[in-house]
């Protein structure tokens, strides 16, 4: 199965080139140039990972991350930023970001994180399924 990723950045040229490069690595890529558009997309579809720019007009990456995680706690979000400060990094991790990568980033690093995000998502989903099954079995007294 191909990795399904959503890239969110207000830099259209960056979105275009990064998505093309990820597509040549057999990824299923969607793009959003604003936080609003990205939130609509995660409402409508499921993604293995979201690559999200930290600094965007109107709604910044941290605020977007917070909303995304409220809507879908299992969603794996990788933040991209021009300048990663320690404070921002801590804030991002507290809000549930999977990782914070500094721009310009090596594509191999982005690809690796997306793959890792997919694995983590699968583990989370499996864990939840196991918990549900265990809960049913307990309730039935089996």
């Amino acid at each position: 199965m191909t990795d399904k990723v959503l890239i969110v950045d207000d830099e259209q040229d960056f979105l275009d080139v990064l998505s093309e490069r990820l597509k040549t690595r057999d990824m299923n890529v969607s793009t959003a140039s604003s936080a609003k558009d990205a939130i609509k997309k995660i409402d409508a579809e499921s993604y293995d990972a979201v690559v999200l720019d930290l600094m965007m007009p109107e709604m910044d990456g941290l605020e977007t991350l917070k909303i995304m995680k409220e809507k879908n706690p299992d969603l794996q979000v990788i933040l991209l930023t021009g300048h990663a400060t320690v404070e921002k990094g801590i804030q991002a991790m507290k809000l549930g970001a999977m990782d914070l990568i500094e721009k310009p980033a090596d594509l191999a690093t982005i690809v690796e994180r997306i793959k890792q995000a997919k694995t983590e998502k699968i583990i989370l989903v499996e864990k939840k399924s196991e918990e549900r099954i265990r809960d049913i079995l307990t309730r039935k007294g089996w």
């Binding site: 721009k103 310009p104 980033a105």
Partner: peptide, 10 residues
């Protein structure tokens, strides 16, 4: 940095 990121990907 944003500009460099586009150049890097290009």
């Amino acid at each position: 940095k944003n500009s460099l990121a586009v150049l890097n990907e290009s």
